[in-house]
């Protein structure tokens, strides 16, 4: 992909129309343009960036395994709990809709319309660890007319 040798080869031809002189080198090293490219490539390459291999004694290794296993179980239980909640929500939605259909077909039709084009409000924020200084804008009203946003 991005290797130093291949790119320098292709780029040297373009950067510097070579007029070959025998036994003469004007400067040591690469010209600044090429140097820049090589620098960029070395930033991207993984060479000498891998951290050293961890050496664990048996006890540490068993500790690590136990902690990881416990943590994975915790995550698994959390996911399963989440899924069961969703399933319960779905079942009760289903039951409620069926009941409404039998009680009042008109209301059912209104309730059962598709919701394409619905959007979460633009003011929705992914929560952060630290809340902002001003938590709530009390005087805020979302723009409705005249703005291009929908």
């Amino acid at each position: 992909m991005f290797t130093v040798r291949s790119t320098v080869k292709t780029i040297t031809a373009h950067v510097k129309p070579t007029q070959q002189l025998r036994y003469k080198r004007d400067k040591a090293g690469l010209n600044p343009q090429l140097e820049r490219i090589v620098n960029q490539l070395s930033v991207m390459s993984a060479a000498r960036k891998q951290p050293r291999l961890l050496k664990l004694c048996d006890e540490d290794y068993i500790k690590h395994r136990t902690v990881m296993k416990a943590w994975s179980l915790y995550r698994k239980n959390k996911i399963e709990h989440n899924e069961s909640l969703l399933e319960k929500q779905y079942q009760s939605m289903n039951e409620a809709a069926a009941e409404l259909q039998s009680i009042n077909p008109k209301l059912y039709e209104i309730a059962n319309e598709h919701q394409f084009g619905k959007r979460f409000p633009l003011e929705i924020r992914t929560p952060t660890d630290f809340p902002p200084r001003q938590i709530w804008f009390y005087d805020y009203f979302p723009k409705v007319d005249g703005s291009k946003q929908q």
């Binding site: 989440n82 969703l86 929500q89 939605m93 809709a97 259909q101 059962n112 598709h114 992914t126 929560p127």
Partner: peptide, 18 residues
């Protein structure tokens, strides 16, 4: 976290049709 805590159940409700 935001997805699992707030969005997922809302999306289930929004997309649902009996």
């Amino acid at each position: 976290d935001h997805y699992f805590n707030t969005l997922q159940s809302d999306l289930l409700l929004i997309n649902y049709r009996h």
